[in-house]
Computed example of a mutant assay.
Amino acid sequence: MPTVIEKALDYIGGMNTSASTPDSMDESTTKGIFKYLKELGVPVSAADVTARGDQEGWNTEFTKKVAGWAEKVESENRIVIKNPEYFSSYMREELRALV
């Protein structure tokens, strides 16, 4: 798995992964990360998310929800980011540096 995807999953792993659904801030951040990585040419797959979630013991429903978003972005389906400002320029710079 590319380092940039590992880093993206580290960001997601820092969220409240014990909840069954991410809060709105975490949802917007996660979707922003996935969309940005797709733009950079390194999309995150649902399998990547599921593997990390299983490895780190994320809540099953949380993992399914996040993996679903990854699948939507990877397959170029429309995804709504309610609060795009939560995906910070710092995260963008960190991820871009790893591509």
Rank of each mutant, 00 (worst) to 15 (best):
M1S: 14
M1C: 13
P2R: 11
P2E: 15
I5K: 09
K7L: 00
A8P: 00
D10F: 14
D10E: 15
Y11L: 11
G13I: 11
G14N: 13
M15N: 09
N16G: 11
T17V: 15
S18F: 12
A19V: 04
A19K: 05
D23T: 00
D23K: 10
S24W: 09
D26P: 08
E27Y: 09
S28G: 12
S28L: 03
T29Q: 07
K31W: 08
K31M: 15
K31A: 15
F34A: 01
K35R: 08
K35Q: 13
Y36Q: 02
L37N: 02
L37Y: 03
V42E: 06
V42D: 05
D48H: 10
T50N: 07
T50P: 07
Q55T: 14
E56Y: 08
E56L: 14
G57I: 02
W58P: 02
T60L: 10
F62E: 04
F62I: 00
K65Y: 14
K65S: 13
V66I: 14
A67S: 07
A70C: 01
A70Q: 05
E71G: 08
K72R: 13
K72A: 15
E74L: 05
E76Y: 06
E76L: 13
I79Q: 03
I79V: 14
K82Q: 14
K82R: 12
E85H: 09
F87G: 07
Y90V: 15
Y90E: 07
E93N: 11
E94N: 11
L95P: 00
L95Y: 02
V99W: 00
